[in-house]
Amino acid sequence: MTATPLLEVRHLSKNFGPVQALSDLSMMVRAGEVVALAGDNGAGKTTLIKAISGVYQPSGGEILLKGKAVSFASPQEARDQGIETIYQDLALADNLTIGANIFLGREPMRRAFGILPVLDRAKMAEAAKSTMALLDFHVSRLEAPVSNFSGGQRQAVAIGRAVYWNAQILIMDEPTAALGVPEQRKVIQLIHQLKAQGRGVIFISHNLQDIFAVADRIVVLRRGVRAGERRIAETTHDEVVKLMVGG
């Protein structure tokens, strides 16, 4: 590979007091690549993505963004540099529209009658429409609060917000865990869309079906260390399970 990876993690470690949650972990994500993180409970997956997204400060190692070493003091700093984490339920204000959620905290304003500053709802609706279309979700209900939408659609709204604000790397912790089967399929579709747009995706999943449906590579963690890494095209469910349980 010649292109610089979008994100590279080198020898990352993180301990909570005596607990070594992560040690000497290296991995990378290229543009348009989907990397799955797998491993048993307590393997360190969540710790890894929290270290990448600025929630935790790593105890050692480095993070490179497009080849340049970075360190994030807060999730906000990571977001400012294009690393967005999609959370399941914390992400949306249910009583607001898709547009209002996309722009939450950075609402566009316009001047009514040339003087009075008011929220630019038309712009928000327009952005909502085009962003959701970009994700292949065609929504007609732009005035409806997001509570009216299904779980998969809400996931799409959260992803849409990241896409609108130009996130280059999207991180998802078990994005399909709380969803029914048809909804899970939609989220997998969404990840395909993100990949097609040249973004990098890291997602944690326990569902090998999902991983094999959408990931390019899988990184398996076991007790805080990398148990193995495989290209999806060159591995099998059996092999991945063996990596996860060890032996």
Partner: peptide, 8 residues
């Protein structure tokens, strides 16, 4: 509706 979402 969701203070945590607002904070984020």
């Amino acid at each position: 509706a969701n203070a945590q979402a607002a904070r984020r």
